[in-house]
Design a protein around this nucleic acid. Structure first.
Length: 816
DNA sequence: CAGTGAGCGAGCTTCCGCTTGACTT
């Protein structure tokens, strides 16, 4: 053992970089995050005895802990270099406990940027583990455990098994549920907005056009019409011209949350995709750490960025700035997300990696660029005989500054209409109206959350951490509280009144699609029910300020002003009482929450919507006790329907399916709606309806047509069968392919599938087998192997091969 | 996968944050 020093950091990629800075006397290893935690199954907190926690080294960390232990015993000095935040301090402390190091003397070093200077300086100024900070982390950990492990079982009992609740996830669900309730309550007012196109003769005799909007909205069609009638006879003139200077400043470099938001808006990435791609960039040494709440750039980075700006754009584009974090509870253990080497303007990699890198590069560089200088112009146009004004707005960029490189996209809600240069014009200029339109518009309902906008909201509330934003979204989706979905919009008619040049008013009805959604978060019935329950019984935990409140107390613990045990006791005692109360309450909450929709006109019985054992359902008639009375009828809600919004009419319609749609070839045709949407069933076979077919009204003829279509496809599916060789040439969803031994092989482009002989097929199969493990066929082959044998060994060995394959396939895809 | 909704009881589920693999498509 040549090294005298062992430095332990959290991330292996970081370890590699730091090892280079420190030279051969220092061995740098990674702990891979936390090494110990509370037990997985058990609550692990001794409530009777001062909330003493039990910590365990989890199975997947045993190997790394053993390695660190052995190294620690061989070196002279151990340096604990985990991140400079609460969790990092706890990792350092757990390391002392597990590796048998003396907390009082073991060197603890910190740096929040990975530069040579920062590391060398850190080594010069070691301290010891800050036990107050460690206690703040333990309090955080224990509080989360107590909340999660006491609340979840209440839900199992009162709502449904396997559900979960927690300080972070339950608030995330609440945000989504409350937004949905706002949308349900929303009653958008209608109004008429008026837009005009004016013209005038310019100074050189040319015809100039000017678009302007009226500064007033009309509540009714009559008012709008009256105004247009007035306009028909009115004269228009420029009343005033106002020019205002404006500036726009660049946004701060990326944090995890802002990266997720911009990648979502500009690249259409999901939150988890952004993190996966960023992780690859980080591991390749191309960007700094991607889980950060800091907007800070190292001095080295600012200097390098400044150089690039001067060289690429010139001195006038350079303006150094320091950004400050606004988000609550930021711990700033790292730098902002930026390229590791600013002079690398582009990288090799997959298209996704390239695009994300480009975004990060531009944002970091733009953050050190000059403001954009703008000139905004407003031209007010007087309407003779009216106190209302038309306004033409223009914005001219006088100096582009950072806009030359990067412009932050507007939030989901507000998309600015484009406005540019206005024609030169004088006050008093008379204008001619080319056309004036009054269009019926609708107030916008509140927007649903996208993954990224949910993350933003959570961050604003100080809830969750950069490392948990993406997993939190997965959790609330996996629990069935929330769905990420696209929804088709519905058509909506609107009125347009147009005043033509000749002075007549034309009324036109048009249609637009409204309410369409793409990749938005919708609450489910279960999500709404659980939220209802938690809000009722545990309002303190669901409070948007709960995290902020306890964070303040964690800070007090970190500063040594409060004992962690006292803090936890103060929280736990009243909390536990509410848990007891809730548990003692009789009956199922789900059953008590039925919504009465009305009465069934056929039977006169009540129609209810509620959550049942298999999800949301409609019930006609009363639930029976002791088997008395008539059994109620049941039907499940379809996807997109909610208990909170379903109407009596929609509910009753659910009972019309499955229905008989006549006979074909002597066998019954049934129409129904299943997991995969509406279907036709005939002779034991299922055919999906087309999007345009309505299951409630579809005719026998159309159903038969669908059955025949499917049969035709089935017939066409088989192109060749070579029985002795076990090879088939088939028509699939993506065109013809070869099936052999449970795996599929693609047919090279330009080959006519019908002309393939057995020999051709064999060659294709062999070629693709040889080409490598990354062929998609391998997966199917592996699946078949897993199915055919129960031996764990076989599965493992194939899995191991796959790992090797994976690496080569990553390289391949990146080359594309 | 194409439907279900009795009641009982055994055995299970669950938190948040810090890290990568080892998986999947």
């Amino acid at each position: 053992m040549s090294s005298e020093n062992l430095v332990i950091v959290e991330s292996p990629a970081k370890a590699k970089t730091i090892e280079k800075f420190l030279g051969k006397d220092y061995l740098v290893k990674s702990s891979f995050g936390h090494i110990r935690d509370l037990p997985k199954k058990d609550i692990g907190v001794d409530i009777e005895h001062g909330f003493a926690p039990t910590y365990e080294v989890s199975e997947d960390k045993k190997k790394i802990v053993a390695e660190l232990k052995s190294l620690a015993s061989k070196v002279k000095r151990v340096w604990l270099a985990s991140d400079e935040d609460r969790e990092g301090e706890a990792i350092a402390w757990h390391l002392t406990q597990v590796l048998g190091l003396d907390v009082a003397t073991t060197r603890r070093i910190v740096f929040h940027e990975i530069t040579k200077n920062a590391i060398l300086n850190a080594i010069q100024a070691p301290r010891t583990v800050n036990l107050n900070l460690v206690n703040a982390q333990q309090a955080r950990r224990i509080l989360d455990r107590l909340v999660g492990f006491e609340l979840s079982p209440v839900l199992w009992k009162k709502v449904k098994p396997s559900l979960s609740a927690g300080r972070v996830q339950s608030v995330a669900v609440r945000l989504i549920v409350e937004r949905e309730k706002e949308i349900i309550r929303f009653k958008g007012a209608r109004f008429y907005k008026v837009a005009a196109l004016f013209s005038f003769i310019g100074s050189k005799g040319e015809i100039c056009k000017l678009k302007a909007d009226l500064n007033h909205k009309f509540g009714t069609e009559e008012e709008a019409r009256a105004f247009l009638e007035l306009c028909a006879k009115a004269r228009f003139s420029v009343e005033s011209i106002e020019k205002k200077p404006g500036r726009r400043s660049p946004a701060a470099p990326f944090t995890t949350s802002t990266l997720q938001q911009e990648a979502s808006r500009k690249l259409g990435f999901s939150v988890s995709r952004t993190m996966m791609v960023a992780q690859r960039l980080y591991e390749a040494g191309l960007i700094t750490y991607m889980r950060t709440d800091s907007v800070n750039l190292s001095q080295d980075a600012v200097a390098a960025i400044s150089g690039v700006i001067k060289q690429e754009f010139g001195n006038e584009y350079l303006h150094n700035r320091q950004y400050k974090v606004k988000s609550k509870g930021a711990q700033e253990a790292h730098e902002a997300i930026r390229p590791s080497y600013i002079d690398r303007m582009s990288i090799d990699g997959s298209p996704q990696e390239k695009r994300l890198y480009d975004l990060i590069w531009k944002r970091a560089v733009a953050s050190q660029m000059s403001d954009a200088v703008l000139e905004k112009t407003n031209i007010d146009i007087r309407v003779e005989g009216s106190d209302k004004l038309f306004t033409a707005k223009g914005e001219v960029v006088k100096f582009d500054g950072f806009l030359k490189l990067y412009s932050e996209s507007g939030s989901d809600e507000e998309k600015q209409a484009d406005s540019g240069l206005l024609p030169p014009i004088e006050k008093g200029q008379e204008l001619k109206a080319e056309s004036i339109d009054a269009t019926e518009r609708f107030e916008q309902r509140p927007p649903r959350y996208s993954e990224a906008s949910l993350v933003k909201h959570l961050e604003d509330l100080g809830i969750g951490r950069p490392s948990t934003y993406a997993p939190t979204i997965s959790t609330i989706i996996n629990r069935g509280y929330v769905l990420k979905e696209d929804r088709e919009g519905t058509p909506r008619g609107y009125v347009q009144l147009s005043l033509t040049k000749s002075g007549e008013i034309i009324r036109k009805m048009s249609e637009e699609i409204t309410g369409a959604e793409k990749a938005k978060l919708f609450p489910t019935d279960i999500g709404m029910l659980v939220n209802e329950y938690l809000e009722k019984h545990f309002p303190a935990i669901l409070d948007y300020n709960f995290t902020a409140k306890v964070e303040k107390e964690f800070d007090d613990i970190a500063e040594g002003k409060l004992s962690w045990e006292k803090m936890i006791r103060h929280f736990y005692e009243p909390f536990h009482d509410t848990v007891e109360e809730a548990t003692e309450e009789k009956g199922s909450f789900a059953n008590s929450q039925q919504r009465l929709l009305g009465t069934d006109p056929e039977s006169g019985k009540n129609v209810y919507a509620r959550v049942g054992r298999f999800g949301a359902m409609i019930q006609i008639g009363e639930s029976q006790k002791d088997g008395e009375g008539e059994k109620p009828q049941y039907a499940s809600l379809q996807s997109g329907q909610l208990i909170a919004t379903i109407t009596l009419e929609e509910a009753l319609q659910l009972f019309r399916l499955p229905r008989n749609a006549g006979e074909y070839e002597g066998k019954e045709i049934t129409i129904g709606v299943g997991r995969f949407g509406p279907y036709v069933r005939h002779d034991g076979k299922f055919v999906s309806l087309a999007k345009t077919d309505n299951p409630y009204t579809i005719t026998q003829e159309r159903a038969i047509e669908l059955i025949e279509e499917k049969r035709k496809k089935e017939r066409e599916k088989v192109i060749h069968v070579y029985e002795t060789e076990g090879i088939q040439v088939l028509n699939g969803r993506w065109g013809p392919y070869i099936a052999f031994n449970g795996a599929n092989y693609k047919i090279p482009k330009g080959t006519d599938a019908a002309s393939l002989s057995v020999e051709d097929c064999k060659r294709i199969i062999e070629a693709q087998e040889a080409e490598g493990e990354n062929a998609p066929s391998k997966k199917a082959a592996r699946k078949a192997a897993v199915k055919s044998t129960k031996s764990v060994k076989t599965v493992k060995s194939t899995a191991a091969k796959k790992t090797a394959a994976r690496k080569s396939s990553v390289k391949k895809t990146t080359k594309k």
